[in-house]
Amino acid sequence: MPVIEAHGLTRRFGDFTAVDALTFSVEAGEIFGFLGANGAGKTTAIRMLTGLLRPTSGEARVVGFDVYTQAEAIKRHIGYMSQRFSLYEDLTIRENIRFYGGIYGLPRRAIRARTQALLERLALTEAADTQIRALPLGWKQKLAFSVALLHEPRLVFLDEPTGGVDPITRRQFWDLIYEAAARGVTVFVTTHYMDEAEYCDRVSIMVDGRIAALDTPHSLKQRYQVGSMDDVFLKLARPAASP
């Protein structure tokens, strides 16, 4: 059963159709790249899929729950991380983990055990009582990703998770993505780095509210007869580039 299944998913704001009849599915364990130019409708689509915005029409089920009637259940069963929404700067690493564990409704015993495991995996045990504001950006991002997986969701949304980080840390972050996918977590990721599009199992490219293409990076490059995802993106997104 697909982890995300959307049929004709549409959202209008007044006369403007931000998302126009999206139909696609994401399978369990996939790394799914969700690309598009600024203003193509990515954010609106993600807000609907995460239960934050009610669609105008169409259908979608996310981790088995309906986006209209079970939005709260979706929020509890997915992970979410973006550059803008991350950890609390004035709480320590340990306090952030405990806080999110509480938000996700984990029992105290589970929070303790998972905090321990998480800190060890990231080699942050000694830094557990450091405030987030004192961490380098790369570590904040890695920690935020791990916290987004604290409640062991089957699906995690990553909205431009690597923006601004150095090139080595960016690749270490993708190691974490691969590890999560290997454990069976489905990863739904947006990025402006086109080399990262190549790391996805499948990629969709939104143009003017619609999915203009959806396939493996290899097939997309073959279809458009270009050498890189950067060129695929330029070919598809060019008509949508606004003045």
Binding site: L124, E126, T130, Q131, P136, G138, W139, P167, Q172
Partner: peptide
């Protein structure tokens, strides 16, 4: 340039060890 940058980077910042 990205190859060059990574080769010249000292290292990405290590995990912090003590609590400031």
């Amino acid at each position: 340039i990205e190859d060059v940058f990574m080769a010249r980077m000292a290292a990405p910042p290590p995990p912090p060890t003590a609590s400031p």
